[in-house]
């Protein structure tokens, strides 16, 4: 028979026993186990990511506080056109007589909204399709979903957008978000499908099957939390892409013409021949703030890399 671990065998000499109190000490160590740094401590520990977060914070503040910060309304065209920078117009005015600084500040709202929702939308679609098709790899469900993913990957994007935009009745910011979502989910979906294929044969997934969990519970409650850093990195990547795409579409004149964004500023500047008129600031600043925002998001992704790969954390 077995002996109870807490009671020593009878032939043990005095002093040669394990005091149950000591076992409690050994067991109590579980109380104090170091849990490691939290995810935000990890991201914050990276100088690059810290700079990116601060920069992104500045952009968000700028967008929120636009009514306070901007000297005038963005669509106020009542000033003298083509004015050089002055105290009344720190960045000058456009050919149509709008204040460039005000347009720049108000325009941040569009970029951030498009980045946030375009990124979310693309990530959500990519997650749903990527996870389900990866988990069910080799079945007809995967065949169908992979087929659509492949189609979305190879369809030439620009003609598609131009066609969609040209035939659409509405030209709102939400329509832009929708279009960007549609064109950008396929790549991330592929990445997530590949990731889940490596995760779905882990023992804890098999264990969840034995525990009677259904497929969706397993995918979203057991597997998805393992990929949060991948999903987060995917979101920031998609947001970066969406911001760039919005600016690109607007620059081509395919964006939302009613509101001012950095893309429409560039479009107007290009259209009016800003350089020829000596208004290089008009062309330069929207590009500059745009690259600043994209830089911030990219730097944050360096921090997210540290979560999934602890070895990188030790780099100086």
């Amino acid at each position: 028979m077995t002996t109870n671990p807490a009671q020593p065998t009878p032939q043990v000499q005095p002093g040669g026993t394990i005091d149950p109190g000591d076992l409690a000490v050994a067991a109590a160590q579980v109380e104090e186990v170091e849990t490691g740094p939290t995810w935000w401590q990890v991201i914050w520990s990276s100088k690059k990511a810290r700079f990116g977060l601060i920069l992104l914070g500045a952009y968000i503040l700028m967008a929120i506080l636009a009514p306070v910060l901007a000297p005038y309304a963005a669509d106020n065209l009542t000033f003298n056109p083509i004015e050089m920078p002055s105290s009344a117009h720190p960045l000058g005015t456009t050919t149509q007589g709008a204040d460039i600084l005000s347009q720049l500040i108000w325009g941040s709202r569009v970029s951030l909204i498009v980045g946030l929702f375009g990124g979310l939308f693309a990530t959500a679609v990519a997650l749903l399709i990527g996870l389900v098709s990866g988990y069910l790899e080799g079945t007809w469900v995967d065949d169908v979903l992979s087929f659509f993913t492949n189609v979305a990957l190879v369809v030439p994007v620009l003609p598609l957008i131009i066609t969609l935009m040209a035939y659409s009745e509405v030209r709102s910011i939400w329509f832009t978000v929708l279009i960007i979502g549609i064109i950008s989910w396929a790549g991330p979906a592929r990445a997530k499908r590949a990731q889940i294929i490596t995760l779905r044969n882990r023992d804890f997934v098999t264990a969840a099957k034995f525990a009677g969990d259904n497929t969706l519970t397993i995918i979203f409650r057991e597997i998805l939390p393992q990929m949060t850093s991948l999903v987060a990195a995917g979101f920031f990547g998609a947001a970066t892409g969406a911001i760039g795409a919005e600016a690109g579409l607007s620059f081509l004149g395919l964006g939302n013409t009613e509101s001012v964004s950095w893309g429409t500023m560039l479009y107007q500047a290009q259209l009016q021949g800003a350089l020829a008129q000596g208004l290089w600031i008009w062309l330069l600043v929207p590009g500059l703030v745009l690259s600043g925002l994209i830089l911030a998001l990219t730097l944050i992704n360096f921090g997210i890399d540290l979560i999934s790969n602890p070895l990188l954390r030790e780099d100086a």
């Binding site: 077995t2 807490a6 020593p8 000499q13 040669g16 026993t17 394990i18």
Partner: peptide, 12 residues
């Protein structure tokens, strides 16, 4: 404690 050659912990 008296010298021993065996581990005096729990056993199966």
């Amino acid at each position: 404690p008296a010298p021993t050659k065996r581990f005096l912990g729990p056993e199966f």
